[in-house]
Design a protein around this nucleic acid. Structure first.
Lengths: 207, 207, 207, 207
DNA sequence: AATGAATGAGACTTCATTCAT
DNA sequence: GATGAATGAAGTCTCATTCAT
């Protein structure tokens, strides 16, 4: 999905170039789905999405034959965006700060995914690949940030990227009426536990 | 619900004693619902529950007029059981151990509640009270364990019971194919971050 | 039903005297049904009736095995009361007045029977006898009033009691938001059409 | 609804032309509903209607989201047809005859509406507009016929169109086993009461 | 005789997915 | 390719009637 020019909605299979209007429809659908998912969760009726996108249901099913295909596409797209943000942060900030910023970015992404966890829960084989995709993309991104921070002595290397990834995903999944900052505070507390005994002053996380 | 002899299914309103067979049915329904919820989430069709309980749908709706009433009853019941476990643990173990054990107990409860978080998410006003109930019951139980551990110098007092409660709830909500121990490890990591700088050896949590 | 001492609810079959509490329950049920029918029509859930009567549903079904039995009992009872009112009116008033008063009485009865017409409509064989009962009881009562009025020269004899009976029943069945007087006005207009050409001044009906 | 070419089922909102098959389905549904309503009343299960129409239930709910929408559509359609018949009758017949014919037409329409009155009774806000619609459409039609007849000296002007409309509606609502002519006879009797004293010979109503 | 708990058929309605236009 | 109408399975809930207590 990170390739914006040749992929198709359903998995970069077709060699043929997509018609411009078709591509526009796919864009509208992804955008609409992202919005609606954030508002009402991934279980919304398809009609709600197509109405917002301004297309017919048929168009949705043409591009995303299974409902899960749409969910996957939306998520993967944001996973890509999240992974892509890591290098820039690493270049611009000190290792601890870069890590913190990126985790915030991740938290923000997760926070808009009401029902996403439930979808993963669902056992629906359609989502089988999603968890792997997430790890495949975000694992290295986070791993690299962690390594840099560890090398700089700002973090003890005691959590795997995977562990941390899931922890953020879970802690930041929003509950209704939850203090907006809650997820980030907990992530900070978690990472804070990883600081070397004598370097807390250097860490960007609230104590 | 903590009173096992006089409560009614819908909130201990009726003064009249419940008929024995009726009570048995309510028991069956709660038990069946608990089982099915753990297996298939809280969104299972009602029929699945009543079939397992061996009663007709009508009986379900007599005792739990809204589907949410059943969910609430099941959860509240387990919340009660969880809260009730705290004093015994406190009496039998050293403060740090008692805290650790109780958090494990909490984690186990949460682990069987697929879709419970989603239900809280749902915005359905039917669940409005549930979150409050949870805090009301478990907050003091955890608070007392935390206080004791803090007083014993085994914990720094830096998380509120509520923060910790939600963190456990979120970290331990099970994802498919997740390493079974994951939630507990993360909780340990979190609490570990709260140990006083020089007493890590005393703590029961894995490092 | 006009015999208040030996009949049973379901048709004066049993020779055995009814237990006092049983009789009281039947009374409560009939009274409650009458009230509820007037308010919400004859299709109300049985529970609504038994709750108002302060008895269990089982009691309802003991005395009125078919739902239609209850409806019939309620209606028949009021039909009886209506028929019984005729002689007194005839004794106390001039023929035209007596007729007018009695038709008002009939109109008032009909006005409280929302859904009664629909029940007759229903084609349910359970109601087969009801229409006949109505005619059998009210026909003679009205016939006698009509005859007297005709003999007194206050009415031309051009409608059968049956025709008039049904006309009143239909015109007075209440519609929502209907001017309360509507039924009576129309009945008056109808009967007015029956006056002898030169005696309009003597008639009690509004012109 | 009186426009047979561009209206939609739910109120002539959409500017877009209805697909031919969709229109055919709506027609089938209205036709089937009309038939079934006449036979079994307006409370029949939806399935019965869709089976007769040869469409799925979903189609019914697409075009008539509320059950009351279907009832309203059926009734309004026939109200329109009834109102539309007035001018032709007025053009072809003498005033008294035209009035009589039209009332017969109205009576015939009402006679097929078992349960229609009950629906109006129901208090369901969904039917709020229906009574008004009826008056709005039929009131002027009848008013004009009455005025013409009055001007011709064939009728004394003493009933409002509304009064007469409702009287016909009520008198002609069919009861089971009722003499088929009953409603029309009563309407005739009613209108007959309105004739001028010396012109009875001119009137088309049976005496 | 009274009670009210249990039953389960059946009504309504929604919505994912297919397919004619 | 796009559209949205059609489908019907599936789920929730109601309520008349039966029957154990």
């Amino acid at each position: 999905m990170s390739d914006g020019t040749t992929g198709t909605a359903t998995g970069a299979r077709a060699p043929r170039r997509m018609r411009t209007d078709a591509r526009r429809n796919v864009e509208s659908l992804l955008e609409a789905a992202k919005t609606v998912f954030a508002t009402s969760g991934v279980d919304v009726p398809a009609k709600e999405i197509t109405d917002l996108a301004g297309v017919g249901v048929g168009t949705l099913y043409r591009h995303f034959p299974q409902r899960s295909d749409l969910i996957k596409a939306v998520i993967e797209r944001e996973i890509d965006a999240c992974a892509d943000a890591a290098p820039a942060l690493a270049a611009e900030h000190k290792p601890g700060i870069a890590l913190a910023r990126w985790l915030d970015r991740l938290a923000a992404f997760v926070a808009t995914k009401r029902g996403f966890a439930a979808a993963l829960h669902s056992g629906d084989p359609a989502f089988d690949g999603l968890s792997g995709y997430l790890m495949e993309k975000l694992g290295p991104a986070l791993g690299s940030l962690l390594d840099t921070a560890t090398a700089a002595g700002e973090i003890r290397a005691e959590v795997s990227p995977q562990d941390l990834l899931y922890a953020v995903a879970k802690l930041c999944a929003p509950l209704p009426d939850e203090e907006p900052d809650y997820g980030r505070r907990m992530v900070a507390l978690l990472v804070d536990g990883l600081r070397p005994a004598d370097s807390s002053a250097d860490l960007p996380f609230a104590r």
